[in-house]
């Protein structure tokens, strides 16, 4: 019996460039931020150690609860809406028909635009006097088209733009995953008399389970970093109506120049993001790495 070649797993050395990169540009700044959260610093001079001062300030920060809630709301709503759109759309666009390919290509355009470009386009569209908001507003019960300027509606406008931005990406995930599903499953189901809907719910959705988890983690954890769109569209306004957690962090650190408190917020975000992704992975059983193709 010929000796099997050593299994293809490369040694640790192979990971060194990535590890160095990660350590220098992610880990090291993260440690600095955690350290800075115990200091008072406005960017001038040297940071002063103040122990738990920032964390106490954070505990009594009236904006923190509202920012947390806004981030949570944005995360959950955009996750639900995007999944409801992306899953069927991805499955549909996985079909090999040429018409679908053409429509899909057009649909992926937002993926090519930077967040800044998207935000600028939408601030023009949401202008109540010269944009689409004034025209479409009356149809949606907002006669004067005052979406991003209304404390109640602004966050929904932000969520709409975020959804618009990320739907193509998640659709692409589902499209690719759908194309991986073995055709034999559908052929067998057809022979057994399963209809379109039955096939979708009994074959497609279970087969896409891992993609659903991946996409959900990306969306939920990603929602903690939705920042650029909000900054450019509303700057957290009107008032504090769209001041999500990452924006609160940025404004505290870089507009109020309270780097210590900003770092405490950043640390909080770091913990929240890590906890959230661990939670999703655990709840969905993704960690078991169970195959959806066992027996095929």
């Amino acid at each position: 019996m010929a000796r099997e070649p050593r299994s293809g797993r490369p040694g640790l050395v192979w990971a060194v460039p990535a590890l160095v990169y990660f350590a220098a540009l992610a880990l090291f700044p993260m440690i600095l931020v955690v350290g800075l959260s115990f200091c008072s610093w406005n960017g001038l001079g040297d940071p002063q150690w103040i122990g738990l001062g920032n964390w106490r300030k954070l505990a009594s920060d009236p904006q923190l609860g509202s920012s947390l809630w806004l981030s949570l709301e944005t995360g959950v709503v955009t996750w639900l809406v995007q999944t409801a759109i992306c899953l069927p759309l991805g499955v549909w666009s996985a079909g090999r028909q040429r018409s679908r390919a053409v429509v899909s290509t057009m649909f992926f355009v937002p993926l090519l635009m930077s967040s800044a470009a998207i935000a600028l386009v939408f601030s023009a569209l949401l202008d109540p006097n010269f944009g689409l908001a004034g025209l479409l507003g009356p149809w949606l019960g907002v006669d004067d088209g005052n979406f991003i300027g209304s404390p109640g509606l602004a966050i929904w406008a932000v969520m709409f733009v975020i959804t618009w931005q990320f739907v193509p990406f998640h659709t692409l995930l589902y499209q690719a995953a759908t194309r991986q599903i073995p055709v034999v499953l559908y052929e067998a189901a057809t022979l057994d008399g399963a209809g379109r809907w039955r096939q979708f719910f009994s074959i497609t959705v279970p087969q896409l389970r891992n993609s659903i988890v991946t996409s959900s983690v990306l969306m939920l954890v990603g929602s903690l970093t939705y920042f650029d769109i909000v900054l450019l569209l509303t700057s957290g306004g009107p008032g504090t109506a769209t001041r999500t957690l990452p924006l609160h962090m940025y404004l505290t650190g870089f507009s109020s120049f309270d780097m210590g408190l900003g770092s405490a917020l950043a640390t909080l975000l770091l913990i929240a993001g890590t906890a959230l992704s661990l939670l999703v992975v655990r709840v969905t059983g993704f960690r078991r790495m169970a195959s959806v193709r066992e027996g095929l």
């Binding site: 600028l120 006097n129 010269f130």
Partner: peptide
Amino acid sequence: FGTSFGSVGQDSGGADALLAKGK
């Protein structure tokens, strides 16, 4: 200021256009 001033931007030219276009 009208009712929808909260959605009007200065950087995006929304307020300037209101004045220049006679609105």
